[in-house]
Design a protein around this nucleic acid. Structure first.
Length: 886
RNA sequence: GGGCGGGUAGCUCAGUUGGGAGAGCAUCGGCCUUACAAGCCGAGGGUCACAGGUUCAAGCCCUGUUCCGCCUACCA
């Protein structure tokens, strides 16, 4: 087998390895720090360093890669910045689990040694996800890979913290926050996942002191009553107008006040609300309004503290709930228990039920940052695509609340704040501090908390490019051109990048934001390990090849809808890849002997109809692909190419040129040139989607490029539109399909060549059909063809009407009058059905007078055509029936 | 509670200025036609969720109903 030949079927593995290596060795993905070319940049959404590649990544990365390769072909200097984030809580959890296996915990190790361990972990396992991205063919500039804990990025984080603190936008305070007892850290509101659970609403009587009866409160969390410091009622609640000012708090021996607050919903429960300022965000606010004390009865470990009644101290919160309920029952104070569905917050990392708890935390005051971020989208500087997501973005931005950024873990950027042990002064600084700026004391301790990981990823678009230094890279590539992301991190990440970018760079971080779908399973369920419905992208790549997988993702990436992925689809697109491979294989057999030459007018003038047609189609498809990619319609671009390659190039063009290639006609040199051109251009159009196979095939075609296909021009300069060729070819194709139809319906073996007579009233048309009749002969497998003016209808023939033309397929010897009669009746029925709509319109005065002329004309024409067709078919039906005595 | 998206062929989904309902898979029939059986040729299949409205004309625009999914929220 010659070096330019291809294997019989496409085997992805070797090809993928080969081209991955080629791209890497030849640094094909490297961006130039500065260049005359237009700049195009994307920063990758940094996957968690603990992560393994999932479908979300695969889709996300595929779309970015399509855009990057496309822009390179358009001549841009492309930077696709790769990297990972340090995923504070997740990574710490992973390493802590390791320690547990060794019988250790992080406290036994100490902070520094622990952090050392995390770095070691990262060195060993942290590259996994990056290698997986590479298997997808991601054309990131890998030499620039960044990590949020790198020195440079850490410096950026510190600078941002200090500047925001100095601007009064970062503050520290005692607030109620979401506490994860398992991760032992505070969480931002966003990091709490609410889940509707079947719970209970407990009605508990708090007895009056000096008279019978009591106030009945309703709660879902009876254990928190131990920390109650008031009962609240609505100020205008008539039911409670004449009650005492205090009640007894059961189980504690305490007496608490009854307060009035309009927050209370009179319609819910009993209209009396127990107030636990230390363990409920609303109660906390009520407590502040009424100067109530806060009693922390649940500790950071989710066990009852010494401030709870003695009997309960040390109990887990849920055990305590049972105990409290049992005890209340004994005392006769439990009025009733109703079932109640209510939202319960869970930690987004470990799914533990979050405990609202009082603690001292750091916050970002986000309102001032949000203002510009809103404006930038409103005035179109940054465009969110599809647009519906802009609304969600505004919603959140307008109602934004302060962001809790401190985390009580060790792995992350330690907050650059120091406390003086002598005068309690707090200092925030770029440089590490060793002396108090207020009293001169050297007794300083640094804040032990670290920052939320999202705080550092919010800086990603500029911190990765070297900020705070004013690097060439920043000058060239900021603002970035496009961000591709799932909507699940619209708030977590995109919104925060907008705020930080605008504040520190004084410019938007990206011009376009493309929000893609979520990849779900066949049943539309979110893929998750616990459900066991995950499809592993690496497994898919192993079995179907990267190109088939990528093409599937692109083909399903319709805007605004989730993707339901099943292996069936991927299999289907593997067939497509194989189809392309075989089309190339066929072409190469004939292109062995072909040497391209520059523009040759003689060859162009000598093109066959099929050549002119496919070039015209190619011109249109190239333009379509360009338009669709420019507007992020990945599915439309992919489908246009699928349709073109399979159903035009393979089904018609290659079949049409076979006789020419086998030297039976005189177009061969032109056709070889055309075939080469079409195939080459098609590979170019396909390259952004399926990079591996396209490189491989292109390298076997004549005059292979001396670089990746990425650096050949995007084939949008075919300029071979030929309407006449398209019209004529369409007529030919319709005739061929019509004849094939008869063959199928009449059960005529493909091996039997047919005789056809065409009646055609127009002399020019007859001439034209005659010119191209070899197409009919070859593709419809004819023995003879006669083209003439309409005359006597041949006997024993099946009838096809196409426009002005009537085709008679001789059924001499095989005719089945009954069958042909039924077929014609069915055909007529179909036309009748189509005629109904048009006839109705034409009978409607309003339509004729009010609809635009061109529409009316079109309907008239269609109606006339159909009527004529119907008449002809009817005539033939009558004749057939007469002959066959039906 | 608020918001958003969706309901189109058996399945999964396209359908962007309102003007002849499409694709892939599946199904049925016929083919080993020398690129490809991971293939070729042909066929069948839809009251575009339901009910109104606007319009000469509605899958598309408006209103309501219903079912599903998601996001968001401080009713214990």
């Amino acid at each position: 087998m010659s070096a330019r030949m291809l294997e019989k079927s496409y085997e992805p593995h070797a090809v993928e390895d080969k081209w991955s290596e080629y791209w890497k060795v030849n640094k094909q993905f490297a961006a130039k720090d500065s260049s005359d070319q237009p700049a195009y940049s994307i920063v990758i959404p940094p996957p968690n360093v603990t992560g393994v590649l999932h479908m979300g990544h695969a889709l996300n990365v595929t779309l970015q890669d399509i855009m990057c390769r496309y822009r390179r072909m358009k001549g841009d200097n492309v930077l696709w910045m790769p990297g990972t984030d340090h995923a504070g809580i997740a990574t710490q959890n992973v390493v802590e689990k390791q320690l547990v296996k060794e019988g250790l915990d992080r406290h036994a190790l100490g902070r520094e040694a622990f952090i050392q361990r995390v770095w070691e972990w990262r060195k060993t396992y942290g590259g996994a996800i990056v290698n997986q991205l590479k298997r997808l063919g991601a054309s990131c500039d890998w030499d620039r890979e960044r990590f949020t804990m790198d020195d440079g990025l850490s410096k950026a984080v510190r600078k941002v913290f200090v500047e925001l603190y100095d601007a009064g936008l970062i503050y520290q305070g005692d607030y109620i926050t979401n506490w994860c007892p398992r991760c032992q850290t505070a969480l931002a509101d966003l990091e709490v996942e609410h889940e509707e659970l079947e719970g209970h609403l407990y009605h508990i009587r708090y007895p009056f002191e000096d008279r019978n009866g009591g106030l009945v409160v309703a709660t879902t969390r009876p254990e928190t009553m131990l920390g109650d410091t008031a009962v609240a009622i609505h100020p205008e609640d008539k039911r409670y107008e004449n009650i005492p000012g205090t009640v007894q708090l059961p189980l504690t021996g305490r007496t608490i006040p009854v307060i009035k607050d309009s927050y209370v919903d009179r319609k819910f429960g009993t209209g009396a609300l127990k107030v636990t300022p230390a363990h409920d965000p609303n109660d906390f606010e009520i407590g502040q309004r009424h100067n109530l004390p806060s009693i922390r009865v649940i500790g950071d470990d989710a066990k009852m503290t010494e401030l709870a009644a003695e009997a309960y101290q040390g109990l887990d919160r849920f055990d305590c709930r049972k105990q409290v309920v049992a005890d209340l029952k004994k005392l006769g104070l439990l009025v009733k228990i109703d079932p109640l569905q209510h939202g319960v917050g869970h930690c987004y990392r470990c799914k533990t039920v979050v405990e609202p708890n009082l603690s001292r935390q750091w916050f970002v005051k986000v309102k001032p940052l949000a203002e510009n971020a809103i404006k930038a989208v409103e005035n179109g500087d940054t465009q969110i695509i599809p647009e519906v997501w802009a609304k969600t973005y505004y919603d959140w931005m307008y109602n934004i609340k302060d962001w809790c950024i401190s985390r009580q873990i060790w792995w992350g950027h330690r907050i650059p704040a120091w406390y003086c042990e002598d005068c309690q002064h707090t200092m925030v600084s770029m440089e590490d501090m060793d002396q108090c700026t207020q009293c001169g004391s050297k007794q300083l301790t640094q804040e032990s908390d670290v920052l939320d990981t999202w705080f550092s990823s919010a800086l990603w678009p500029f911190s990765t490019m070297g900020w705070p230094e004013n690097t060439e890279l920043l000058k060239t590539f900021y603002p970035t051109s496009l961000l591709v992301s799932g909507f699940d991190i619209l708030f977590f990440w995109i919104a925060r990048m907008m705020m930080m970018g605008l504040w520190f760079m004084k410019d938007i971080p990206f011009k376009d934001v493309y929000i893609h779908a979520l990849v779900r399973d066949e049943a539309g369920k979110k893929m998750s390990k616990s459900k066991g419905n995950v499809i592993d992208p690496l497994d898919i790549i192993e079995r179907y090849g990267t190109d088939a997988f990528r093409f599937t993702l692109a083909a399903f990436a319709a805007q605004g809808r989730d993707i339901r992925l099943s292996e069936k689809r991927i299999e289907g697109y593997r067939h497509f890849i194989n189809k392309l491979w075989n089309a190339a294989r066929f072409s190469l057999i004939h292109l062995q002997s072909y040497t391209p030459e520059p523009q040759n007018n003689e060859l162009i003038g000598n093109r066959s109809l099929a050549d002119r047609w496919i070039l015209s189609r190619l011109t249109r498809v190239a333009a379509d692909v360009e338009t669709h990619l420019d507007t992020y319609k990945f599915n439309e671009a992919a489908n246009a190419l699928y349709q073109f390659v399979w159903h035009e190039l393979c089904d018609w063009y290659l079949e049409a040129i076979k006789p020419i290639l086998f030297d039976r006609e005189n177009h061969k040199p032109s056709t070889l040139a055309c075939l080469n051109q079409v195939l080459t251009a098609t590979l170019g159009l396909l390259h952004p989607f399926i990079p591996f196979i396209t490189e491989e095939i292109r390298s076997k075609l004549p005059n292979p490029p001396d670089s990746s296909l990425m650096f050949t021009d995007f084939p949008n300069q075919i300029n071979a539109l030929d309407d006449q060729a398209e019209v004529t070819m369409t007529l030919m194709m319709d005739m061929i399909t019509g004849i094939r139809n008869i063959r199928g319906e009449m059960n005529i073996s493909p091996s039997v060549a047919l005789d056809v007579i065409i009646h055609s009233p127009d002399a020019n048309a007859r001439q034209e059909i005659d010119t191209y009749k070899s197409l009919l002969v070859n593709l419809a497998r004819l023995k003879s063809i006669v083209i003439q003016k309409p005359s006597i209808r041949p006997k024993s023939a099946a009838t096809i009407v196409i426009g002005d033309h009537t085709l008679y397929v001789s059924l001499e010897g095989v005719i089945d009058f009954e069958k042909e009669s039924v077929r014609l009746e069915k055909e007529i029925q179909k036309i009748d059905h189509e005629l109904v709509g048009a006839s109705k319109k034409l009978a409607n005065e309003d339509f004729l007078s009010k609809a635009p002329n061109n529409v009316v004309e079109k309907v008239k024409e269609r109606h006339a055509t159909m009527m004529e067709k119907k008449n002809k078919l009817n005539e033939n039906l009558t004749k057939i029936q007469k002959i066959g005595n039906i």
